[in-house]
């Protein structure tokens, strides 16, 4: 799974990326070690109101003073890439086009943990 995100995370200026379901659950989260604290804060957000507002989009970009959130929607998930203001955004967009079709292979973390527990217990 790490390989899927390696190319995006390898782009200079990419701070992290997240995959969030339409219901607002965080499926996956990968961040640069310098942004662990921010990752933790983002994982605690209730994303559902945001995903509701973003329901009808194909893609979006949110520009802040010192970062940009690139958001791409698939059928059931949103891919969110967080980049610094000097990152090559076109490279991020291109890589996300490649990355998104691979997301169907990703399953929610909770389901995977459930499977693991089932194996251990039974």
């Amino acid at each position: 799974m790490k390989d899927i995100f390696k190319d995006v995370m390898g782009i200079a200026g990419v701070h992290g990326l997240m995959v969030i379901t339409n219901e607002g659950s965080v499926l996956l989260s990968r961040f640069d070690p310098d942004y662990r604290r921010e990752e933790e804060k983002l994982s605690q957000i209730n994303w559902e109101p945001f995903t509701i507002e973003m329901n009808s989009i194909k893609d979006a970009e949110i520009v802040y003073d010192s970062a940009r959130f690139y958001i791409k929607k698939r059928d059931t998930e949103f891919l969110i890439v967080i980049i610094g203001d000097n990152a090559p955004i076109s490279m991020v967009r291109l890589n996300c086009e490649i990355l998104l079709p691979l997301l169907k292979k990703i399953q929610p973390a909770s389901k995977r943990i459930g499977n693991l527990l089932r194996k251990k217990i039974f």
Binding site: E38, K41, L42, Q44, I45, P49, F50, E53, M54, S56, I57, K58, D59, A60, E61, I62, V63, Y64, D65, S66, A67, F69, I82
Partner: peptide
């Protein structure tokens, strides 16, 4: 409502003020 949500997310990431959004709809 979208701006409010986006501002909350920006605050969590500590990346300053929300300046502008680009939205490409279906």
């Amino acid at each position: 409502a979208l701006i409010d949500q986006a501002s909350n997310i920006g605050n969590a990431f500590n990346c300053g003020r929300l300046n502008v959004l680009y939205v490409n709809r279906e």
